[in-house]
Write a protein that binds this DNA or RNA. Structure first.
Lengths: 156, 156
DNA sequence: TTCCTAACTGCGAGGCGGTTGCAATAGCGT
DNA sequence: ACGCTATTGCAACCGCCTCGCAGTTAGGAA
């Protein structure tokens, strides 16, 4: 995966396991029991998880290196994406129709996903202001969350 | 250093090696030949560099773990800061009066430092739109640079 | 259905970036 | 010049991946 690379793949959201496997096959991939197990875990998650977590949640548990490879494949196909929240391992999740973008607070070290309407508005404004078009899906927006801004302003 | 931690230390820019050493001493630190060598390297750099690079540029070359420790100390004092550009190792540089903030292009994988007025404008926009106050000194603004936006729009 | 072959898997080792423990060295206040 | 303790280098270690390889298996061809 060369984990750090950015997922400039276009998302290929699917509704269920079966259609995910179809997408895989379309792409020339094979549907193994490991891949079925991996995707089952992904469909059961409610938040991005580390490869460690995903591999061990599968039944039977999957090999970690293989899981990296498979997730890379799924990411290339657009079924999966990953985020870097905070400092630990990269976190994977299914690509959804409305891919989340994240913000990370440097003070309280917590992630929050950002409201799409808000982030889209900000993105346009930023592009006008700087010429740069930000994307916070893979690497989050880093700074202070509203609570910590309040805290900091109170101290000052 | 627990590298990933954010440098919430306030910058303490200095003009030359001598005053840097003074700051260190003020803080109760000792001025060793290693530290002198390390700071000399830092003053000679024109862009942020990895610990590897810095340690081996010193004369005589410095031990890498020690260099991490010393840079951590210097960062706490405010003489030094570090940035994460792209995916490699963290990059260190002297804290300057007008600390740079960076933008990173996910497509061409290049960093550019952003004009302060522009980045300040972007920061305000983001805070107004999302309630989150970003800081791009430690982790950059990530997305597409103007050239890659043009390229992408052309393809579409 | 069986066969063949390339795709996939698990396992082990390896790499990079960074951290920790410890004994030896060396600032610097006295 | 002395002694206390910060700082250093070395070596081992850790987390997060990545690679190589030999054994297995999906799934098209015969």
């Amino acid at each position: 995966m060369t984990m750090p690379e950015s997922p400039l793949t276009s998302p290929r959201p699917v509704a269920d396991l079966t259609s995910a496997l179809d997408v895989l096959r379309e792409d020339g991939g094979r549907v193994s029991s490991s891949r079925r197990a991996l995707l089952t875990v992904l469909f059961d998650m409610d938040a991005p998880r580390s490869v460690e977590q995903i591999a061990s949640a599968a039944v039977p548990p999957l090999d970690v290196p293989s899981t990296y490879r498979t997730l890379e494949r799924l990411e290339q196909v657009g079924l999966v994406r990953h985020v870097h929240l905070g400092h630990g391992p990269g976190l994977f999740e299914l690509a959804s129709i409305d891919d989340r973008e994240y913000a990370w607070c440097e003070s309280c070290n917590k992630a929050s996903s950002i409201d799409r309407a808000k982030i889209d508005a900000a993105r346009d404004l930023i592009e006008k202001a700087t010429g740069h078009r930000p994307r916070f899906g893979h690497f989050p927006l880093i700074g202070l969350c509203p609570e910590c801004i309040a805290k900091e302003d109170a101290e000052a």
